[in-house]
Design a protein around this nucleic acid. Structure first.
Lengths: 348, 348
DNA sequence: CAATTGTGTGTAATCGATTGCACTACAGCG
DNA sequence: CGCTGTAGTGCAATCGATTACACACAATTG
């Protein structure tokens, strides 16, 4: 006799508790508007029927999906997945679901985001990728499609978007200064992707630090990179081809630093004996690399959590007319073993 | 005058195209049931109005969210995030959204999954975590809450769930045999988490290989581990305390292998000079570690893609009465520099 | 020519929860 | 006693798309 019953609805609960559906709904969403005895009856009825809310129905009526969309340039990258982790945690705590859109190799990223947002699947967008076409984003953010948006980790200059990120410029400065303090005078920079704002700021920090120390910025010591290991690996070959080789490298992130060191290894060079290396991010593997990597630690968890908080705050506060918010977090220098004092023995 | 117009609905399109909403709906979902001229008028009207589908309304009516839920033990782990990447790609291609639930440190994981599934937010569940309580899962999968479920990477024994995974047992065998082939006779295994089926299979493979080579399985050479770097690091201390030290280690995964090597480094031991090490997974960093890590490569992308395919196939095929499916993929031995022939010089 | 089939479209019910409005009952007050 | 205010509840409209059913009309068939 127990046929495959359909999922119980609020109607079933109402019938079982001998109240109207309106009362059940209120007992759930604003319990203080319902008498205690009724509330108890409803709770019991919910238990008996095994009722669970149909989110689609609620979304339709309330025009709210209780879901945020997180757009990442590449989930596989441990840096982003850590942030996603923190975002997911915060969102879950506040009753939101997390949809992910991996933009890596996607055909038309902006279009995809637009589809998602406008189809009422997500209430807000958390963007971890600064490389999107600004104009297509504007069509999302401007009326009539005013999608709540927070940009994290990356930044879109002059966009006026809400942003949470770390102070890449001063962190780049700090990293470079660390090398200078160790006595290095010939310091290269392994660049991040061209056009990436974060990478640009780290470069600017590098340049500042050199300039402040009266060291020249040498064009040939800016190595092409792309934030990934392969590009770091390739840069090592370039490094070997130089007539005058730097004694230290500041890499725009840990992944490329690791790729670079792995590349150097092919030529028999060892860190920190032959070269000092500082990275950026403090990925989990940095502490366990050989050698353990000196790096600028970004507070990933904090960053993800704050970005999620900010977005959800915006979503839940209809009166968010307080102008663009911008939170800048500090990075921290983590000294490990990949950086060392310049050897006293002269190299020439 | 251009007030904040509401999002255009199918009604607006119908009015603009001078047809009924039914026709608009049909023009979208089954174009061949609509005459060509009407179809053109509707397309034009959609363009003019800027209409986008309200997914909530569709979900409510069709009882389908066009979304899958991916549950992971820990997104930060690069192994899982790679799989998520592949899953997301496949799901997107087939028009599905991807919700993520990170079960790491979650209070009551099974409850969370249940909530998600029963609230009509997701149509199916892709489980990448084998450590969940089986009984709570059964309440999900059995009627009346028959949630379509595919388990990937991990396995839940005797559950009868659909599964995609690699052949951990034979891969564990292969890995161990590789060490034996290099002349090693004293081979340790750095275990995965207790109770984890995948870890258990890799251990079984290790045991098999030893037995086949007439080597004894020594209890004290089974090092506790947890699939993460910290546990590998800790195991190194244990290793140092042994009176007779193995010459090679098969680690249950790359992360713990890296942690272990990093631990050994503290004691001045170097791989592969002092010890050979083989890992499992072939994480991106494996190729760029120092030394580059020999490992068993799991076809992560394929695995993720197939799991997503399987789940969506099930969702879209109402008649999926073909019994539990089980796909086993092969891992591949990737020989790099962390394993070496046993040195001819005797250690005693 | 009548009967039949098929194509294209419209009408209206439906999915399940929320919520504006109306109503009852009762307490408090002058 | 009559009036007002408030707490608690129910009725029914609503969100936006889908779809069973009905119907009009053209094409095909016997």
């Amino acid at each position: 006799m127990t046929e495959t019953r359909k999922t119980p609805t609020i109607q079933d609960v109402a019938r079982s508790a001998n109240v109207s559906t309106a009362t059940v709904s209120r007992a759930l969403s604003s319990p203080d508007r319902v008498s205690e005895s009724t509330r108890a009856r409803v709770s019991e009825a919910i238990r008996v029927t095994g009722y669970t809310l149909n989110q689609a129905a609620r979304s339709l009526r309330q025009r709210t999906a209780k879901t945020i969309l997180v757009a990442l340039p590449d989930i596989r990258n441990s840096f982003f997945s850590s942030i996603l982790d923190a975002v997911e945690r915060e969102a879950t705590n506040r009753g939101y679901g997390v949809l992910v859109a991996n933009l890596f190799l996607a055909r038309s990223p902006a279009q995809r985001l637009q589809d998602y947002m406008l189809s009422n699947r997500a209430d807000g967008l958390l963007l971890l990728d600064g490389s999107l076409d600004l104009s297509s984003l504007h069509s999302l953010v401007r009326p009539p499609n005013s999608v709540p948006l927070v940009v994290a980790c990356e930044e879109i200059p002059n966009s006026g978007f809400h942003t949470v990120l770390t102070d890449n410029l001063s962190a780049g400065e700090r990293a470079t200064r660390h090398l200078i303090d160790l006595g290095h005078r010939q310091i290269a920079h392994l660049l991040g992707p061209e056009g990436n704002v974060v990478a640009r700021d780290r470069l600017a920090g590098y340049t500042n630090a050199l300039t402040q120390a009266d060291l020249p910025v040498q064009q040939q010591w800016l190595f092409r990179g792309n934030f990934d290991m392969e590009s770091g690996f390739a840069a090592a070959a370039h490094f070997m081809s130089l007539s005058v080789r730097p004694t230290a490298v500041f890499a725009a992130n840990d992944e490329s630093a690791i790729g670079f060191l792995s590349g150097l290894r092919q030529y028999g060079l060892t860190c920190p004996r032959d070269i000092s290396m500082i990275g950026f991010d403090d990925l989990g593997v940095a502490a366990h690399y050989t050698p353990p990597l000196t790096t600028m630690r970004q507070p990933r968890e904090l960053l993800g959590r704050m970005a999620a908080e900010m977005l959800i705050d915006i979503l839940e506060d209809a009166e968010h007319r307080r102008g663009p918010m911008r939170i800048v977090l500090n990075s921290e220098l983590i000294v490990r073993e990949s950086t060392a004092h310049l050897p006293l023995r002269t190299s020439g």
